[in-house]
Nucleic acid binder design. Structure first.
Length: 267
DNA sequence: AACAGCACCTGTAGGC
DNA sequence: TGCCTACAGGTGCTGT
């Protein structure tokens, strides 16, 4: 479900809502949602105040007062909510109770999401590429690419850039006029420059609109995003391209649905 | 190295 | 209503 803009939106709300609160107790209702030892996870968090909340790629990071650091990755259907409705009730996997009586629930229908304790923040989330919000850093990554893998697959590779997912990969490629199957090594210098600008642009616009809600995604405040109103290609198979009117095509690349305009994004 | 395929899970939508 | 299939915003593993 959530890609970088959705996670960033959630992190901003978490900072307002749970920063500084002290975790009284953690209950784990689905053990596999926690990677590693569940008992240790619960023990290390209990009694600790949350001192910082961060984002790295699609990971949400929580730093506790004693330096303990843990992350939440929402994967496809993970959500953080402060109140449980009937649907939420059914899928609560982990429950944080705070000393002030409030709560934070990790709700996850498909059970793909993961919570994980790390030795410290600097040793967390290894193998992630740079953040894709700055054109200069994206440009240096793109100029370093010599693989023949399709550029769409490369954008989804979290070790290349951290946080780009299926929606924004398609949107950024459309904005740059690049066919998703183009081998990364064959991108021209001009294409690399265009893509280095479109990736951050598409992500930042989506952050401003609090993310894209297609089905499940809701912010912590249980609002939907607004970016779905502005998608150019994702989810628009067979509909006319807003630029040239040609029907948007949908193909499968590395197992993921991929949308593009056959006229504006030639191979 | 790179890729396909599948595993992990559940819910929903569409065809019949 | 029910049954079946396909599909879903992510990642990680295995085998070729």
């Amino acid at each position: 479900m959530p890609e970088l803009p959705e996670v960033e939106t959630i992190v901003r709300e978490l900072r307002q809502q749970v920063m500084g609160k002290t975790i009284a107790r953690v209950s784990v209702h689905w053990e596999r949602s926690v990677q590693g030892q569940v008992d240790e996870f619960k023990r290390r968090l209990a009694g600790m105040a949350i001192s910082a909340i961060s984002r790295r790629g699609k990971f949400i990071g929580f730093e506790l007062h004693d330096g303990t650091f843990f992350t939440i990755h929402l994967r496809m259907t993970g959500k953080l909510v402060q109140k449980l409705d009937a649907a939420g009730q059914k899928h609560v996997r982990v429950e944080f109770r705070f000393q002030d009586g409030s709560a934070l629930y990790f709700v996850d229908a498909r059970k793909f999401g993961r919570l994980r304790l790390w030795p410290c923040q600097s040793q967390s989330c290894p193998n992630l590429g740079p953040e894709p919000l700055n054109p200069a850093s994206v440009l240096s990554v793109l100029f370093g690419l010599s693989t023949r893998r399709p550029v769409k697959t490369v954008l989804l590779d979290q070790t290349v850039l951290a946080g780009v997912g299926n929606i924004y990969a398609d949107e950024a490629l459309y904005a740059a006029g690049i066919h998703p199957l183009t081998p990364a090594a064959r991108l021209s210098a001009g294409q690399r420059r265009k893509l280095s600008r479109s990736v951050p642009k598409v992500l930042k616009q989506a952050i401003r609109r609090r993310g894209t809600t297609l089905r499940d995604y809701r912010t912590l405040a249980d609002r939907s995003g607004e970016n779905q109103e502005y998608l150019q290609v994702y989810g628009r198979a067979d509909q006319p391209c807003f630029t040239c009117g040609a029907p948007i095509e949908k193909i499968r690349i590395a197992g993921r649905s991929s949308h593009f305009c056959p006229c504006c994004q030639k191979l």
